[in-house]
Amino acid sequence: MMSAGSGSPSRQRSTNNGPVSDAGFVLDVRSFGRRPGTMRELHRTATEHERLGLDLIAIPANAEVELDLQLQAVSEGVLVTGTASGPTAGECSRCLEPFTDHVDIHLTELFAYPDSTTEQTTTDDEAYRMVDDLIDLEPVILDAIGLELPLQPLCTPDCAGLCPECGVRMAIAGSDHGHEILDPRWAKLASFGSDAPGTGDPAEGSTNPNHPAASASDDAESRSENLEEK
């Protein structure tokens, strides 16, 4: 799930609220004068005041985002291409540890002129619009970062996660970490063996007349007596 502001559709942010000045993620293209072929390069550091991204990983609030863009006027609007780069902060989906990283977002978006054919034949969800010759890049970055960031981020590609028995991080548990797991089908037998008297020597039970060892001994003596009588 992406997060930014109130959660309203990102493509409508420019058309509903309208950017106010040439700063941050807002670009002023009035100097283009709707002349196709007019081009300008832009390098800017913008501060994002809201968290942009997914539940487990995002560009954090108040982070600096580097913009490296090319703006080109075309017949239907202004084509914006380039990259937006910024730090990310997240939580590993395996071991649940916080970690930081970096993301590069590649942008290629057309911002339609008011009353252009593109503006008249598309909906707000299909194309971005310009407002008063200003371009708001924030909804573009919001849409792009949702596709760029992983749904299940990892602190390292080979993260082993947590021990399923005790919950310790396997990265710090050591190679000899393990647990003796007793098959529940034998658990009661193990308990019975530990509670039974004696050392387990069959001869120990020979003093009990009902013990198999005692019965065998009595049978042997009886056969010996019968032989002597004969």
Rank of each mutant, 00 (worst) to 15 (best):
P164S: 11
E76Y: 01
L154S: 05
E225R: 02
S14H: 03
S21I: 07
G86T: 14
C163A: 12
D132F: 06
R223Q: 02
A127T: 10
V80Q: 04
R13E: 05
E119H: 02
S93Y: 03
G193D: 09
P184L: 07
I181L: 15
A4C: 11
G167A: 05
A73H: 05
S206P: 03
L149P: 12
D132A: 13
I141W: 04
D124R: 09
A46N: 10
R129Y: 01
S10E: 11
W186N: 00
L42H: 07
V26P: 00
E109A: 09
L71E: 11
E225G: 05
S14N: 09
D115H: 11
A144C: 00
L142G: 13
I105E: 05
R30I: 09
T83V: 10
L56S: 13
Q72S: 14
V20P: 00
R223H: 06
C95M: 00
D28N: 15
S93L: 04
D195Q: 08
T108S: 11
T122P: 03
L107K: 08
F111V: 09
D22N: 13
N16S: 15
L154D: 08
L147D: 14
M130Y: 08
T100V: 02
E48D: 04
R44I: 04
D176V: 13
Q12I: 07
T15L: 11
R30L: 08
A58S: 13
S194R: 06
G198R: 06
A112G: 08
E204L: 01
I105D: 04
G146N: 12
N62Y: 00
N226S: 10
T47S: 12
E66N: 10
R13V: 08
G37D: 10
E221Y: 00
E148L: 06
R13Y: 06
H106D: 06
H102F: 14
A173Y: 03
P164C: 12
W186Y: 06
E76L: 03
E204T: 01
R185L: 13
F32L: 09
P209G: 06
D195R: 11
I172T: 08
K188A: 07
P153L: 12
N62S: 04
P202F: 08
H179E: 08
H177S: 07
D143L: 08
M2S: 08
T118D: 03
H49T: 09
D125T: 12
L162P: 11
E180D: 15
D201T: 03
F192V: 05
L27D: 00
M130C: 13
T207Y: 04
G174L: 14
S31I: 01
G200R: 02
